[in-house]
Structure formats: structure tokens, C-alpha cells
Design a protein around this nucleic acid. Structure first.
Length: 266
DNA sequence: AATTCGGGGTA
DNA sequence: TACCCAGAATT
């Protein structure tokens, strides 16, 4: 849930989720569609599908216990470099650096200066982070850097005056105007979709379709024609014809199934 | 290396 | 409005 989603917004969903499915065994026994339903409001619905697949893989491959080995973790669905390291540091208390966007920014500023333009690639920043982890204290170190990045060393207006690292930091004190100017100067080119209103984007259509299917009873399916009729209220008229294509995308992503012109959560 | 995948909160 | 976010998978 925390992949690209703020902590404060995840917490209530997380509490409800683990209350309903307290472990891998319970989650593996659940229907994928119910997991996607529980994901409402979180976005990035593929994460729900992958988490469900993860639970089943942990049951099948590892007897219901998450492995601590990096390669074994990375081989599981939805677990990339960051999540593997986060699990090792937080769940297993092993020495590892969970380098998320916060840690990456803090390391860059402290060691190299302002991050616009980027003065090192991800691999280099990972190496710097790993070298900085105190032996036996990875859990605390990762927590500290993430929280520092989220509350003090923020992307927009860092609070250098109250930062515990200000004396050791190459970038401090950061001039907020300079930061904004540089960020804009080195901002990545806008994607082709960014010009159009969000309500006309594929993402919006996907969201409306999945949300409509979430309202169905468990295992209930909706005729494609009915889906089109219901979405006419929230989707621009000239985009309605795209819905079958977008349903196909959702099918490929494992979020939705469609057989004989009837659509439902996978 | 570049894209795609949500949605809600904040300045 | 624009920006931001405990990334991962695909091409």
C-alpha cells in the first residue's frame, strides 16, 4: 500500500485490511475480487492483485513464511528493490537500506547538494545509503531517514533551520526560491497525456470502470452494455466508446475478467 | 531508458 | 493549478 502512496492516507486502509486478512494464509484463501474491493480509494489497483498473488506465492513457495533472502523476495510478485530491502530492515532487523524517494533525496542533499540537477544515479545513491547504515541499527536508521525526508527534508520547502543534519549537509541551508527554480528548470518533459483534462484520460476511465464493478455483489457480473449506460453519467460522451478497450487493458492487468460480454472483478 | 499505473492532500 | 507521494512491471 505504501508504494507511491502517503503513509497518512494508507493507515486506515491498512488497519482494516489486516483486521480482515491477518496473515498470508487468510489472504491467500480470499477471492482476488474482494482484495480489489478492499483497495477502493488507494489507487494503483494492480498492487491489490499482486499482493493477493504474493500471499499465494508465499504459501506455495515458502510454506506461508516470508523469506529473508533478497533474491527470494525479489522473485515474489510486487516486491522490487525497495520493498525487498524494507522487509529485510523492518521485518527481519537485518542491515539493509530501503531507499525510497525520501531517503534518496536526503542522501543526495546531505552528500552532494541540491538534487536539481541530479548529480548521481539511483545505483550510486543506493551505494551511499548502504554505506551509511550503522551495523545492527538498520531499522532505526531507515525510519529516521524516511521520517526526516517526509517532515523536515521535504521535496518542496525543507525546514533546514530545525534539521538535525544541517551542519553536515552540503545543501543546507536550502533557499526555497532557488529550489523551486531549479526543480522547474530540470523537470522531466511532460507526458503526452498531461495536456488533456484528467476526466478524459485512460486512468480516469479505468478508475470509473473498477469503481462501478466494486459496487456489484461478490461474483456478480455486469453486461458490457449496462456498464456503458451506467458510466455515461461520469464519463465524457465522446470517450464512452473507449470503454471496451479499457476493459481489455484491465483484463490484461488481472484486475477484471470479461466473458460473453459480461464484466466483473477478477 | 521511458511509460504506465490512482487518487487524495497540500501550497 | 501543480506538485507530491515508504515503487513495480513492462516494453
Amino acid at each position: 500500500m505504501l508504494q507511491q502512496t502517503q503513509v497518512e492516507r494508507v493507515v486506515p486502509h491498512y488497519e482494516a485490511f489486516v483486521a480482515r486478512w491477518p496473515g498470508f494464509a487468510a489472504l491467500a484463501a480470499a477471492e482476488a475480487a474482494d482484495v480489489v474491493r478492499a483497495w477502493r480509494g488507494l489507487g494503483y489497483n494492480s498492487r491489490a492483485v499482486r499482493l493477493h498473488a504474493l500471499a499465494r506465492a508465499v504459501q506455495a513457495r515458502h510454506g506461508g513464511l516470508l523469506p529473508a533472502d533478497p533474491a527470494a523476495l525479489r522473485a515474489l510478485p510486487g516486491i522490487g528493490a525497495y520493498t525487498a530491502s524494507a522487509l529485510r530492515a523492518f521485518a527481519f532487523e537485518l542491515d539493509d537500506a530501503a531507499v525510497d524517494v525520501n531517503v534518496r533525496r536526503v542522501i543526495h542533499r546531505v552528500a552532494l547538494g541540491l538534487e536539481h540537477p541530479r548529480l548521481a544515479d539511483d545505483r550510486t545513491l543506493d551505494t551511499l545509503a548502504i554505506a551509511a547504515v550503522p551495523h545492527g541499527a538498520a531499522h532505526d536508521w531507515n525510519s529516521a531517514l524516511m521520517d526526516l525526508g517526509a517532515t523536515i527534508c521535504t521535496a518542496r520547502a525543507p525546514k533546514c533551520l530545525i534539521c538535525p543534519l544541517r551542519d553536515a549537509c552540503v545543501a543546507a541551508p536550502v533557499d526555497p526560491v532557488e529550489l523551486t527554480t531549479r526543480a522547474r528548470a530540470h523537470a522531466p518533459a511532460k507526458s503526452p497525456q498531461s495536456g488533456i483534462p484528467f476526466e478524459r484520460s485512460t486512468r480516469y476511465l479505468r478508475g470509473r470502470i473498477v469503481d462501478r464493478l466494486r459496487d456489484l455483489a461478490p461474483r456478480e457480473a455486469l453486461p458490457l452494455a449496462t456498464l456503458l449506460r451506467d458510466l455515461a453519467a461520469s464519463v465524457p460522451g465522446d470517450r464512452l466508446h473507449e470503454i471496451p478497450n479499457v476493459v481489455d487493458m484491465l483484463v490484461r492487468d488481472g484486475i477484471v475478467t470479461c466473458d460473453s460480454q459480461e464484466v466483473r472483478l477478477a
